[in-house]
Amino acid sequence: MIWQLDIVLLIFIVVCAIAAINIKDLLSAVIILGAYSFFMCLLWTEMGAVDVAFTEASVGAGIGTVLFIAAVNKTSRRSKD
């Protein structure tokens, strides 16, 4: 466990989380949520949880983002807040 890499990844994760809930365009918010999931996956590889990392990369970041994009395409893309 390298703590410098850990700190950098955690800062990126918090920035991505704040950006994902503050952006008004829902498609951008969903893509940023995918980036958040991939950063989380990097963090878990770095912490030694390799099985959790590749499950998150395939299921959480992959299928989750695809489901979100499909739902946003079927509904409206704009959000008021």
Binding site: A20, I21, L26, L33, S37, S79
Partner: peptide, 18 residues
């Protein structure tokens, strides 16, 4: 107030517990 935003928040909540 947007429902998709609420869902994104729920995802962040779950990953934080993980």
């Amino acid at each position: 107030r947007n429902l998709v935003k609420k869902l994104i928040g729920m995802n962040i909540f779950q990953t934080s517990i993980i």
